[in-house]
C-alpha cells in the first residue's frame, strides 16, 4: 500500500486509509507471529471470569472444611469433615434438598410444556402483529424483576387479593392460594417461561418450514410430523432451556422466600440462613459445595444422556 504513488494514495477513500493505519498499528502491537494465539486473546476475559469463579469455589471448599467456634464466632483452624457430617445427620437438609429438586423438576417440565408451543407459534405465525403481541407479552413481565413479580402475585393471590375477592363476591369461600409449595412452583414457572421461550425460539427457527411440509407431503399428518420431525430437531433448544430452567430454579431464593410463607425453603434459603442468620460460613460453604456438586452432576448426566452435541457443540 505504502509503495503506491502519492497521487494514488490521495485518491483512495479516507476510510481505506484509516483502516490501513489501524492495520499497521495492529501489526505493530500484535505481530503476525502472535496470530496463532489470537483465539486465546479473545478467550482471556472469559477465562479470567471462570478462573475467578474457580478461586471462589476453592475458598468455599476450604471454608467448608472448618467448623464454627461458638466462643469467638470464627472458624476453627483444624480441618474436618464435620460440616458435611452435620448435613448428613440433620434430616431437614435432605428434606429441603429433595423439595428443591422436586420443584426444579416440576418447574422445568411445566415450563418446557408451556414454552414450546409459545415459541413454535411465535416463529411459525405468518401474522407479524400476532408475533409482536407474543413478543411483547413475553418480554413485558421479563423486564419486571423477580421480587416485584412475586409481590404482584401476593396482591393477586392473597386472602384479600383479586381472585379471592372475586370468589367471595360470588359467595364462595376464600382459598389459600399463597404461602404454600404450589404458589412457589407457580411463581417460578411464570418467572422461567421467558428464559425457556428465548432458548427454544432459535432451535425452532433453524428447522426449515419446508422440512415439515416434506414430512406432510410424504403422508405424515401434522401431529406425526411434529412428533417425529419438529421435536427431535428442536432438541438442542429444549435441552438448553431445560438445563437453564432447572439450574435457575434449583438455586432460586426470592420466590420461596416471598411466596412460600417461610415454611417451604429451598436450599438457597438454607445457605443464606447458614451464612447470615447462624453466622456459620463453614456450614454455608458446605451446603454451597453440595449444591454446586449436585447441579454439576445432574447437568453432566443430561449431557451423557443427550450428548453434548445436542447443544450444537462439536464433539
Amino acid at each position: 500500500m505504502t509503495d503506491l504513488p502519492k497521487r494514488t494514495l490521495d485518491r483512495l477513500p479516507l476510510r481505506w486509509v484509516l483502516m490501513d493505519k489501524i492495520e499497521a498499528f495492529a501489526s505493530l502491537v500484535w505481530p503476525a507471529k502472535c496470530h496463532r494465539t489470537t483465539g486465546w486473546l479473545f478467550l482471556t476475559p472469559a477465562l479470567l471470569l471462570v478462573g475467578i469463579l474457580l478461586i471462589g469455589l476453592g475458598y468455599m471448599l476450604e471454608y467448608s472444611l472448618h467448623e464454627l467456634d461458638l466462643s469467638s464466632y470464627r472458624l476453627k483452624d483444624a480441618y474436618t469433615l464435620g460440616n458435611y457430617r452435620y448435613l448428613l445427620e440433620q434430616p431437614v437438609y435432605l428434606q429441603v434438598l429433595l423439595r428443591t429438586l422436586l420443584a426444579a423438576s416440576v418447574v422445568t417440565l411445566a415450563t418446557l410444556t408451556l414454552a414450546f408451543p409459545y415459541a413454535y407459534v411465535m416463529v411459525r405465525t405468518s401474522s407479524s402483529a400476532w408475533r409482536k403481541f407474543l413478543l411483547v407479552s413475553l418480554f413485558l413481565p421479563f423486564f419486571i424483576g423477580q421480587v416485584v413479580r412475586a409481590y404482584g402475585w401476593l396482591i393477586i393471590l392473597g386472602k384479600e387479593g383479586i381472585i379471592n375477592s372475586a370468589l367471595m363476591s360470588l359467595g364462595l369461600p376464600a382459598m389459600d392460594l399463597i404461602y404454600n409449595y404450589g404458589a412457589v412452583v407457580f411463581g417460578l414457572v411464570q418467572y422461567m417461561l421467558p428464559f425457556a421461550v428465548l432458548l427454544i425460539v432459535p432451535a425452532i427457527t433453524a428447522i426449515g418450514e419446508d422440512i415439515e411440509l416434506a414430512a406432510e407431503s410424504l403422508g405424515a399428518n401434522w401431529l406425526r410430523a411434529f412428533w417425529h420431525v419438529v421435536l427431535p430437531m428442536a432438541r438442542p433448544g429444549l435441552v438448553g432451556a431445560g438445563i437453564v430452567v432447572f439450574t435457575l430454579t434449583m438455586t432460586d431464593f426470592a420466590m420461596p422466600e416471598i411466596l412460600g410463607g417461610g415454611t417451604t425453603d429451598f436450599i438457597a434459603s438454607a445457605i443464606y440462613d447458614s451464612f447470615f442468620q447462624l453466622s456459620n460460613s463453614g456450614l454455608g460453604a458446605a451446603l454451597s459445595i453440595v449444591l454446586v456438586t449436585l447441579g454439576s452432576i445432574l447437568v453432566a448426566i443430561v449431557f451423557r444422556i443427550t450428548g453434548a452435541g445436542t447443544l450444537s457443540i462439536r464433539q
Binding site: L68, Q90, V92, T263, Q277, L278
Partner: peptide
C-alpha cells in the same frame, strides 16, 4: 442466647422445614 441460638434455630428449622 449467643451460645444456644444456633442450636435452637437448627431445631426450629428441622421442625418447620422438615
Amino acid at each position: 442466647l449467643v451460645e444456644n441460638q444456633p442450636k435452637w434455630f437448627a431445631r426450629f428449622n428441622e421442625i418447620f422445614q422438615g
